[in-house]
Write a protein that binds this DNA or RNA. Structure first.
Ligand SMILES: [Zn+2]
Ligand SMILES: [Zn+2]
Ligand SMILES: [Zn+2]
Ligand SMILES: [Zn+2]
Lengths: 158, 158
DNA sequence: ACTTGACATGTTATGCTATAACATACGATA
DNA sequence: TATCGTATGTTATAGCATAACATGTCAAGT
């Protein structure tokens, strides 16, 4: 399990990204085709979330199609497989930093440096499930996205 | 305080909506201008969330401008004042059902009837704040949106 | 070998969501 | 009455997402 805080710290991102990619290959196998793999690599270039059109541009640079469906299909696939997450607040996508582990994380988005981390959300989902159950509502999927300041930027800004 | 579950039940919605509108007027005072007031009324017509363009259409019907900024400005104002909420998952807006009370609710969205309820989220935010603090992250604003089945629809579907 | 069907990719075209920038009006204040 | 802040209207454009159709590939079934 990768340390969630890593997203906000200086670290050996080559290893970090390579590691995730290796796990992704193990999960998705042959169906991680060239476009999809490249898309994941693009997301893995940083700990930021990236818009579909930004991804598309980089895909085109790599010789793939340059029409929106190319990017959206690859991104949708990655999201379906749990290899990427969609950040609705940003209309953007981020690579999942611990694929394979069942999780529906809470996203922590730094408003200053735009980095996105996945915080463990078991307790949050428990609280949400309980609040919903009190009303008779059954939760199927939930997204939790928080905007704020990461530790690194909090130091800098003070 | 209005019962959150009301959104999913048959109820006297005229009273329900009128009540909210009265409270909204008390909060916003003179600045709740005709367009803004009408916008809130439109949102209050149901417990669903409504897209900006759907609102715009109804505003135009009521004799207001029919260009997007008219709707977006009114909606943004209502959101700023805590009289409406933005549901990012739906790219839509819903009237706040208990304005004035400080809250950042969790939204429960029924995937069957599209009704939206605001569940009390104090415990959820506490859990989120704690998960974030563990990483050194300071939460400023958060949105929690759950998709699932409301009690009424759960009965029907079974 | 031939056919079929599932899947992946590419392309065209369009629809939906949101905002920038400029123009006009009006009441409050000095 | 000059000025400022606020509200509304309008034009134009930017940004996000998908429908629908065409093509290519591979593996299963005959
Ligand atoms: Zn993840
Ligand atoms: Zn930061
Ligand atoms: Zn009601
Ligand atoms: Zn329902």
């Amino acid at each position: 399990m990768t340390d969630p805080a890593l997203a906000f710290e200086a670290h050996d991102h080559r290893t970090c990204a390579g590691d995730v990619l290796t796990r992704a290959e193990a999960i998705s196998g042959a169906r991680l085709t060239p476009v999809r793999r490249r898309t994941l690599e693009i997301l893995l270039e940083s700990h930021r979330a990236m818009g579909a059109y930004e991804v598309l541009e980089k895909l085109a640079d790599a010789g793939f199609g340059n029409q929106p469906p190319v990017a959206y299909r690859a991104l949708d696939y990655l999201v379906d497989q749990g290899l990427a997450h969609r950040i609705r607040r940003l209309n953007a996508f981020a690579a999942c930093m611990h694929p394979g582990e069942a999780h529906s994380p809470a996203f922590l988005i730094c408003k200053s440096c735009a980095a996105v981390a996945e915080a463990p959300a078991a307790a949050i989902h428990a609280a949400l499930g309980k609040a919903a159950a009190d009303i008779g509502f059954t939760v199927e999927r939930a997204n939790v996205e928080a905007l704020g300041l990461c530790p690194t930027c909090a130091e800098t800004e003070s």
